[in-house]
Design a protein around this nucleic acid. Sequence first.
DNA 1: CCGAGATCCCGCCAAG
DNA 2: AACTTGGCGGGATCTC
Length: 322
Amino acid sequence: MVRPHRAVVLLLPPVIGFDATIPPQILGSATDQDGKDLYEVRMASLDGAPVPTRSGYSITPDGDTSLLATAQTVIVPGTRYHPRYAGTLTEPLAAAFDRIRPSARIVSICTGAFVLGATGLLDGRRATTHWGYADDFRRLYPRVDLDETVLFVDEGRILTSAGLAAGIDLCLHLIRRDHGAAAANRVAKYNVVPSWRDGGQAQFIERPVPHGEQSGTGAARDWALAHLDRQLDVARFAAEARMSLRTFNRRFREETGYSPGAWLIEQRVNQARNLLETTDLPVDEVAVRSGLGSGATLRQRLHAAVGLSPSDYRRRFRAAAS
DNA sequence: CCGAGATCCCGCCAAG
DNA sequence: AACTTGGCGGGATCTC
């Protein structure tokens, strides 16, 4: 890589400070094998002046919208700027977007999607935003195919992510797309975040706060976690919760956002990753102890999760764990 | 990577 | 009437 990919964050007042700092932190910690930066992240505001955040403090940008003309990726973090309520661009915002190169990738985090919506870039495309503002979004932008159950949507040149921390998932996705899973995994590990979160944001919508511990599938999940090494199908899982299969499936999805089978696979892969990182057990034995059955299944699952074979995974992460 | 057989899982809908 | 349950069908996904 000759020069780092140039990403510019467009700060619109009042910006969500957390969103705004995700790209410099996540993209900014991506490096190649030789430790060279893969991304160069710059902050821009409409006029180059500091931008107040929703939390009171201000962010001093690197410059004004002339920076946008240099961007290979433009990122719009969450904001309560004009389009969030009006669904339209302001004069300076329209001018700012005019400076973006036609080839540049355009990305939003959280309510930044409202800004992209106002440009018309999302019309006829799939997109997402913070689940709490999905209704507002649909009202302002009926031509956009909004899906508030996912963490992010990749439409090629245009990408949108769900609320707040989903911006981390999207930035990891960008790294994965640009430089492969290994580079993204290094960044995730360094930042101490999961390199891939499954299940979308649906799990946060249905029951934002878990209620009534006793009525649900939680006890069965605890039981399953303690017995991952056993062969355990969904029917037995449901029996543990004393529910019919149909009801168990339904309740499980409501409470976790996962189907029981997908949740089991996720837990099993996690267990296998732990065993790979902390033991020298043969791959087939790791597969058995994590309930994945055979090495072939483990290989397939691990590759889907992190893009690495078991031995590659162990090589890459064993040292860090010991 | 394939392909047969197993398993999953979600819309549908009748029955509490 | 509104809501929950759970059997069924069969396309999707998974396992080996």
